[in-house]
């Protein structure tokens, strides 16, 4: 597909219907071990309020986990609780301890170009596709490349 055409398409038009069943999801009270085991094969995991539900409340990415598994280092000026979350020191217990609580999203009606710009501006490599607070799919760099190369 031509890149310009792709930018003009709506997200709902490129979303694979089957994708919704294969999203990496975990509930916010899930044990950190569960989160880690999903991340052995995935780059990220979306955090939902309850098991079996799709109301999204956070995301945990590879880079969050990288920070958790590297030797812990406090910044020069420490405020708030975030820098005390550590796997080694037992303060990262549940998904909600390590997740980003505020998430940048896109909707099925958004254009792909807009969503990609949002990703560039915010320095993100994936966006959840959200409808009525529920996650219905995801746009990732990998996914867009697959579409561009005609593999989807």
């Amino acid at each position: 597909m031509n890149l310009k055409e792709l930018h003009e398409k709506k997200i709902k038009d490129i979303l694979d219907k089957k994708q919704v069943w294969n999203l990496p999801l975990v509930e916010k009270d899930a044990n950190i071990q569960e989160v880690l085991s999903i991340l052995t094969t995935r780059d990220h995991v979306w955090v939902v309020e309850e098991k079996g539900k799709r109301k999204i409340c956070g995301v945990i990415t590879e880079s969050d986990i990288l920070r958790l598994i590297a030797p812990h280092r406090l910044p020069k000026y420490v405020f708030g609780k975030r820098y005390s979350v550590s796997l080694h020191h037992g303060t990262a217990r549940k998904a909600c301890d390590v997740m980003h609580k505020q998430i940048i999203t896109c909707s099925p009606e958004d254009k792909v170009g807009e969503a990609l710009l949002r990703m560039v501006n915010a320095g993100l490599r994936r966006l959840p596709v959200v409808e009525n607070d529920e996650i219905v799919g995801e746009i990732t760099t990998h996914y867009i490349i697959q579409i561009l190369l005609g593999k989807r």
Partner: peptide, 17 residues
Amino acid sequence: TSVGITVKTLMEMKALH
């Protein structure tokens, strides 16, 4: 208070959690 030094000490003592 500035808890930076306390957090470091508690980490050393394995008592942060």
